[in-house]
Design a protein around this nucleic acid. Structure first.
Length: 821
RNA sequence: GCCGGGGUGGCGGAAUAGGAAGACGCAGGGGACUUAAAAUCCCCUGGACUUUGUCCGUGCGGGUUCGAGUCCCGCCUCCGGCACCA
């Protein structure tokens, strides 16, 4: 008999077409038990990379598993279509961003389809579609009404090459995240969202996510939000009315303050320096620091300058000098710091450099400080030299000192956050236009809702300099919605993180042209039951989306607060321990691999090689192994076609029992690995063992009727268990053996508990912790009988001899342990 | 510096609640089939030794326990994040 060979190309094409044509994976609003699988949508850069393949294969296994478990599954895909590369393409290759983007979407869409993913393509969205970004504009207007969106002049990171504003996180280490150019500081009018208003809630919400999000991500977010408790205290300035407010977490050290320090950008400087002879000199010094201060890689040498002014410590009325120093940040706290050189290392270094006094006010509870100090003593301890607070422990002193400040009205308890408001303005073209016009008469005027969307104009010039939107007269020149007079449009567009902060709701109602989405639909599907994506979005995207969800709740569009109750962050795909990159020349192209081995083999390998959260080392021989396995599976089914078509029921006859036990154990194992742990590598390993077990017994069992039935049960179970991982080959075999409909939707197999219980066990016998023998024991044998067996074993006897058994432990079904002396 | 997460054969990884360390796969070695090769199949594959078996072995050093890759204490090291945050 000549067997048909495994020829994946036509098989994969055939089933991809069938699935699409017969609308197999359409999510149905409002029906049955729902399951929403979400993967981070891709930026349409032009082609799929292995990271995408991994991300979407993981999601697809879950989606297919849930379909087979009878769920109504929403598994959508879309495109994070706006962003800088489209514009760079326009500059470098003279292609319009729109054309470039949609061509990429088309190409990447067909790449995704070649992987056999279960997306509901009817729900495909693209953020660059005016029908999508109009809702960005709509949300912005709501935020503006609520005071959540506001405009202010702010120092911003400016990339001189991209000629754009960068968020702090896009300016890592002082370099532009895209082009690597050194970032400069500029002061510009910017639009901001008050994410700071939600800082506490964002932190509070983590409690619900514990155990469901990777701890790493939660910690990163916590650090990012950076809550710290302390007090704000006002210091009067001698000679002027104004006082300077500082924030401190160590109020217990306030008797050790020997000077105040202001950030070079501090607004109070103008007043303090009024009338001082060297005012200009000092301001010039400040400006120099502002320009270069941010994002320098190494720690900058501390530098300062005396203002000539003095402040009064409200606790002891002491007169202390006011300095300006480069180590104080304007964007944290109040931009002013009380300096306690004895108990803060930074102040200590500064005080040493400029010969400022160092006054010890905290001493350890046990032992003594060596004086003079060689470095600051930053620990908490007992207060000394602190008037009526002397002798108190730090924590108690802080409490009492705050109470004192509040009673005297020069200070109060305060909480500070590191997280800053979200600057969304980008001086760019390929983004969502901010729906604001500037009227000479009326000032800042929001565009009325009925004028949305404000579309991106097409008569723009891409020169690589400045904002292309400024070059479109048609766009810029408009009329004021309020007075009808001439006005100019805002030409800044929104940060693309705005687009990705709510796209997962749009999937639930993607064609709605009256609202962003229907609440009923959004709430039927969302929140997504699982969200899968790269760890690189641990902070920004995931915090913005959480913030956005709380905002949507506050305007009544949804009724819950956390968008992603369960998060799976997958590791990178690397090769030989290194990140894949063009410069290293170690990029593996999904297209070529699919062509050579087929989508099923690629999926199988990528899921088998490592658990999802770890980095995955791509291996050219590993993919061969996956392909080999599929060929073996194919052949196994080919040569057993007769059995599979035969009508039979497995029984409990003795010679089939071990295979039947293996079958049912494998069902259990694979089910749990997918459902509970999402460790697909071990699920696949179990299936390979299953294959080995079947092929070992195949010949024997084919000879008897009951054996054929057991084989049939095993083979069909295997086919179902394999199908979420390798959907094409299993669909093909399913159709060959006369399976009804699509295996993709046929019910997942169930295991029988009674077949999983083993008839006999191996009991390990240890003497003094070392394995000395293994006993075969039947189910139901009692402890005494087993013990007797163990003690009569020659191997065990040898080690016990005439020694005394001091301790004896028996763990049923596992181990027996003797401790002898 | 601070906060996370790791470290198991030649390699990717497994061991889910403290109970047989190394499942499964890759690579390697040997054999079968073949004129030959590919493909396929079978066997071996942590180390050492005095090889019916014994001892050692999960980054290092201690500890708890009948029993530790797993728990505790102290280090080393790699990766990631944050970093003058008052």
């Amino acid at each position: 008999m000549k067997m048909k060979e495994y020829d994946f190309t036509p098989i994969e094409k055939k089933w991809q077409e069938k699935w699409e044509k017969e609308n197999v994976f359409r999510a149905k609003d409002g029906e049955g038990k729902k399951y929403y699988v979400l993967e981070m949508f891709p930026y349409p850069s032009g082609k799929l990379h292995m990271g995408h393949v991994r991300n979407y294969s993981i999601g697809d296994v879950i989606a297919r598993f849930k379909w087979k478990r009878g769920y109504n599954v929403l598994h959508p895909i879309g495109w994070d279509g706006l962003g800088l590369p489209a514009e760079n393409a326009a500059i470098n290759h003279k292609v319009e961003p729109k054309k470039w983007t949609y061509e990429n979407i088309k190409r990447m869409g067909s790449q995704l389809k070649s992987l056999g993913l279960t997306y509901d393509w009817k729900r495909e969205i693209a953020t660059c579609d005016p029908e999508y970004y109009r809702w960005n504009q709509w949300f912005f207007l709501k935020m503006y009404q609520l005071g959540l969106a506001y405009r202010k002049e702010e120092w911003v990171n400016w990339c001189p090459k991209c000629k754009t504003v960068l968020a702090n996180e896009q300016a890592k280490d002082g370099k532009c995240w895209r082009c690597g150019t050194e970032v400069e500081q500029r002061k510009l009018n910017q639009w901001f969202l008050k994410i700071g208003d939600y800082a506490e809630e964002l932190l509070e919400g983590h409690k619900k996510l514990e155990g469901k999000w990777p701890e790493k991500v939660l910690t990163m977010q916590k650090n990012w939000i950076g809550r710290s408790e302390g007090a704000e205290i006002d210091f009067k300035v001698q000679g002027i009315e104004k006082s300077i407010r500082i924030f401190t977490t160590r109020l217990d050290t306030i008797y050790g303050v020997t000077y105040l320090v202001l950030s070079p950008e501090h607004p109070v400087l103008e007043q303090i320096l009024e009338g001082k002879l060297n005012k200009e000199e000092i301001l010039k010094w400040c400006n120099e620091r502002i320009k270069k201060k941010k994002f320098l890689k190494e720690e900058v040498e501390k530098e300062g300058i005396f203002t000539g002014a003095y402040a009064i410590n409200p606790y002891n009325e002491e007169r202390i000098p006011i300095w300006i120093a480069n180590y104080v940040l304007m964007e944290y706290g109040t931009g002013a710091v009380m300096a306690v050189p004895a108990h803060d290392q930074r102040d200590f270094e500064f005080a040493k450099k400029y010969s400022l006094p160092i006054k010890v006010v905290i001493t350890p509870e046990e032992g003594k400080l060596d004086l003079p100090l060689e470095k600051a003593y930053e620990e908490k301890g007992l207060l000394i030299n602190s008037a009526s607070f002397t002798g108190l422990r730090s924590n108690e002193a802080i409490k009492r000192m705050i109470t004192f400040a509040e009673a005297q009205q020069f200070g109060h308890r305060a909480v500070n956050y590191r997280i800053k408001d979200w600057g969304i303005s980008r001086e760019r073209y390929w983004g969502t236009p901010i729906p604001i016009v500037y009227c000479e008469k009326c000032g800042i005027v929001p565009v009325p809702e009925n004028q949305l969307p404000i579309r991106l104009p097409e008569d723009v010039k891409f020169t690589g300099e400045g904002n292309p939107l400024d070059t479109s007269k048609k766009f810029v020149e408009t009329v004021c919605p309020k007075c009808g007079g001439p006005a100019k449009r805002e030409t800044d567009t929104m940060d693309t993180f705005f687009d990705s902060s709510w796209y997962f709701f749009r999937y639930t109602d993607p064609k709605n042209d009256e609202k962003p989405f229907e609440r009923e639909k959004a709430e039927f599907w969302s929140p997504p039951d699982i969200y899968i994506g790269g760890i690189e979005h641990a902070i920004l995207h995931l915090i913005y989306a959480r913030f956005f969800t709380k905002f949507l709740r506050d305007i009544g569009l949804i009724g819950f607060s956390e968008p992603f109750p369960k998060l799976l962050t997958q590791g990178m795909v690397i090769k030989e321990g290194k990140k894949m990159s063009k410069s290293l020349g170690n990029v593996v192209e999904p297209d070529q691999i699919i062509k050579k081995y087929g989508a099923d083999a690629v999926r199988l390998f990528i899921l088998f090689a490592s658990p999802p959260e770890r980095d995955l080392d791509w291996s050219d021989t590993g993919i061969e192994g996956a392909y080999r396995f599929l060929k073996k599976v194919w052949d196994l089914f080919q040569r057993n076609m007769d059995i599979l078509k035969h009508d039979s029921k497995p029984d409990l006859s003795e010679e089939t029992l071990s295979l039947r036990t293996l079958t049912h154990r494998t069902i259990k194992k694979v089910t749990e690995e997918i459902e509970d742990r999402m460790h697909f590598n071990t699920a696949i390993a179990a299936l390979m063992e299953f294959y080995n077990g079947i092929s070992e017994k195949e010949k024997e069992l084919r000879k008897i009727e009951s054996g054929k039935a057991a084989l049939k049960e095993a083979l069909l179970s295997m086919l179902h268990l394999l199908s979420p991982f390798v959907p094409h080959i299993t669909e093909e075999i399913w159709s060959k053996v006369g399976g009804k409909g699509f295996i993709s939707k046929a019910p997942w197999p169930k295991y029988e508990e009674k077949l999983i219980e083993k008839e006999s066990f191996t009991i390990v016998v240890q003497v003094n912790g070392k394995v000395r023998d293994r006993l075969n024991v039947l189910k139901g044998e009692d402890e005494e009988a087993i013990k007797e067996k163990a003690l009569s074993s020659e191997r065990v006897k040898k080690y016990i001899k005439e020694k005394k058994i001091v301790k004896f432990i028996y763990i049923p079904g596992k181990i027996m342990s003797f401790y002898v002396k």
